[in-house]
Structure formats: structure tokens, C-alpha cells
């Protein structure tokens, strides 16, 4: 494990609604696992400006990501519906542990 905290970018269409939920659920889960991360929340339109592969390790999105960004993307609809959320959280954990 590297010393540097991983940086997660949470994305939804407005940057204030579903990404807020995805952020909350993810941070809660990672905290329980003892993993500290840094994070930013954004809307999908701003993604090309903020998604720098040098600084962002993982994108967690509730929308489609219509760009080729060279950053892994985890789809997080399950964090909103609760159905399959554990699997999604485990997938996020694998990227940032």
C-alpha cells in the first residue's frame, strides 16, 4: 500500500444530488475499513476539466461517463437503490485500498 491517499472523484449529472449520496455511502464504508481517501464531487459536464489521471485515482459515477479518461470508473447506481451496494463498495475498496 502506498502512503499517498487515493483520490476519488464522485460524479453525477448535477454534482449535488446522487453524487452526494454516493460520496456519503463510500466514505462511510471506507472509514469502517480503515481506508482514508481524498475526494471531490463534480457534475458530468465538468468532468473533462477535473478528471486528471495524474491526480484522480478513481471515478465513482451515477451517470454514464461519455469520455475516454484513462481513469477507472465504478458505476454507483446500486448505492442509490441499495440493491447490490455491497458489491459496488467492495469494488471501490479494491481500487483504493
Amino acid at each position: 500500500m502506498s502512503n499517498k491517499k487515493k483520490n476519488i472523484l464522485f460524479v453525477c449529472a448535477t454534482g449535488i444530488a446522487t453524487s452526494t449520496v454516493a460520496t456519503e455511502k463510500t466514505l462511510e464504508y471506507l472509514k469502517d475499513k480503515g481506508v482514508e481517501v481524498t475526494y471531490t464531487q463534480t457534475n458530468v459536464a465538468s468532468l473533462p476539466e477535473v478528471a486528471d489521471p495524474k491526480t484522480v485515482d478513481l471515478i465513482v459515477a451515477t451517470t454514464q461517463v461519455p469520455f475516454d479518461l484513462d481513469i477507472p470508473v465504478v458505476h454507483a447506481l446500486s448505492l442509490i437503490t441499495g440493491i447490490g451496494a455491497d458489491k459496488t463498495l467492495a469494488e471501490i475498496y479494491d481500487y483504493v485500498k
Partner: peptide, 22 residues
């Protein structure tokens, strides 16, 4: 239907409603 202003980032209305969705 949600009318959300910027304060939703703190309020997180959706997270509260999810208790119903789930």
C-alpha cells in the same frame, strides 16, 4: 420530484429519501 439548491450538499435530501426507496 426534487427541487435541490446548493445546500443539498450538506442536507443530502436524497440520502434521507433512500430509506424509503430501499
Amino acid at each position: 420530484m426534487l427541487a435541490l439548491d446548493k445546500s443539498n450538499k450538506q442536507l443530502n435530501i436524497l440520502s434521507k429519501l433512500m430509506k424509503i426507496f430501499q
